[in-house]
Amino acid sequence: MPKKLQETINRIGIPRLIITAFFIFLCILAVLLGLPIGSLISDTLVRTGMNGVLVLAMVPGILCGIGLNFGLPLGIVCGLIGGLISIEMNLTGLKAFSVAVLISVPISAVVGYFYGMLLNKVKGSEMMVSTYVGFSAVSLMCIGWLVMPFNSPEIKWPIGKGLRTTITLTSRYAKVLDNLFSFSIGGIVFPTGLLAFFLICCFIMWRFLRSRAGIAMKAVGDNPVFASASGINVNKSRIIGTMLSTILGAVGIIAYAQSFGFYQLYQAPMMMGFAAVAAVLIGGASAKNAKISHVILGTFLFQGLLTVALPVANKIVTEGNLAEVLRIIVSNGIILYALTKVGGGGE
């Protein structure tokens, strides 16, 4: 029996157990401290939905063999461009949201294609290279935001050059998904549209993974030699996976922004990849394997943890942002744990 327990612990991973236990502990604390449970659950649901697609973007990357896609900011930047164009076109509501998605998909597909080609050239060091591709892209786009020819007063600084650092969506499509078919039971508000959007994306991804191309992609990620012996074009499959990941990054940021209410430009996307990576890892994925269920579970756990931690921490320590520190430790801790599992280390 202890052996079996040991096996279960090994399979789940100690950090994951700690995080889950900690989450439960926080929830109990929240109840004891008399925090409004209903709004905490609502917030968790919203944050799960808003981050979900970004986390989902990790799945095709991991499965096609490029590992944890730290280069997610590349997709995010594409999504931002799509979002800005939809504002520039002076659209509002769901239409604006859809147009933003429709514009950003081809842009991110093209970017993802070249990104995939690059990653094919650096096999074995994808994670390090993708991190810095992401950083470079964000810092290059900082210059881009300064010089891009947008004219809408909502986007531009009223005086001087360049685009605003945050662009408000209140009059455009803030919370269009959140409020779509939303209802509330006993103080808990369900952001039906947002969750539906996330789940639809998951469903499409799940279906894709059962298509011929999807199965080929999984085989490539699992064992590239096997795949090429089965007549699968390894590089092509990896590019497809990278493109999908980039596209989901773009769509993800638009879904995120509509719920958040703002687009954040310049340095803001820099670290967003890490949060997504951490979430999928917390859900049970590794650098080599990920499932849709890992995405849903991981996003919920990670976002839930952050949502609950904030008010709880504020009750205990009034000063400083304990929840933020917690986020840094948890997310980087889980990534480190996953990295120690990549090489096995025992060579």
Partner: peptide
């Protein structure tokens, strides 16, 4: 880093972020 041979750079970078969290915990709280 001995446990992450072949991925030392990414591991040391993430470790830096992680340690930064602990550092903040120390000095902020």
């Amino acid at each position: 880093l001995n446990k992450t041979k072949g991925q030392e750079m990414i591991a040391s970078m993430i470790l830096g972020f992680f340690a930064n969290g602990l550092y903040q915990l120390l000095f902020l709280f």
